[in-house]
């Protein structure tokens, strides 16, 4: 699938002024934020943040992920945790490890249908709200439907 259709003149996102400082610390294209109190496994936080970066277009096919060394230097987490996260991303076909070169993004995560689903969801939430459902009711309902559809997703 020839997904990589970006125009090369576009500078990589990390050249924008506001991001420059962050990128010095990881030398790469994304910076991972580890929340030690969230209770979410650290490797899973990395997986989720990489996916988020793919969805937002911060990472695109061909981009190189920071090396495990760069990530642990910046975040002070265990190197095996980073490797585990990268293996998971690789298993899902999102990145590939090239021996001696690093880990590279292979695929982007589709934001294609997003706007249509978002409109549907906006509509649905508005109706639920009108009928008296609060934020927590809606979250609980949404979670239970998600759990029904994706029973194996473990955080």
């Amino acid at each position: 699938m020839p997904l990589d259709i970006r125009i090369e003149a576009r500078p990589p996102f990390h050249y924008s002024i506001s991001e420059r400082v962050e990128c010095v610390s990881t030398g790469g294209t994304v910076e991972f934020r580890i929340d030690r109190r969230s209770g979410v496994a650290t490797y899973w936080q990395i997986v989720q943040q990489a996916k988020q970066a793919l969805r937002l277009g911060l990472l695109r096919p061909g981009d190189k992920l920071p090396t495990a060394r760069e990530v642990v230097e910046a975040t002070a987490i265990n190197p095996n945790t980073v490797l585990k996260a990268y293996r998971e991303l690789e298993r899902e076909g999102l990145v590939e490890a090239r021996r001696g070169l690093g880990t590279f993004v292979r695929a982007s995560l589709g934001a294609a249908g997003d706007s249509r689903y978002r409109a549907d969801l906006e509509d649905w939430v508005a109706r639920a709200h009108e009928d008296g459902l609060g934020r927590e009711d809606i979250t609980a309902l949404f979670d239970s439907v998600l759990d029904g559809h994706f029973p194996q997703e473990t955080p």
Binding site: V72, E73, A74, A76, N78, P79
Partner: peptide, 11 residues
């Protein structure tokens, strides 16, 4: 910073 340096050594 220093924990990061130790983790890099461990890497």
């Amino acid at each position: 910073q220093l924990t990061g340096a130790l983790m890099a050594a461990a890497e």
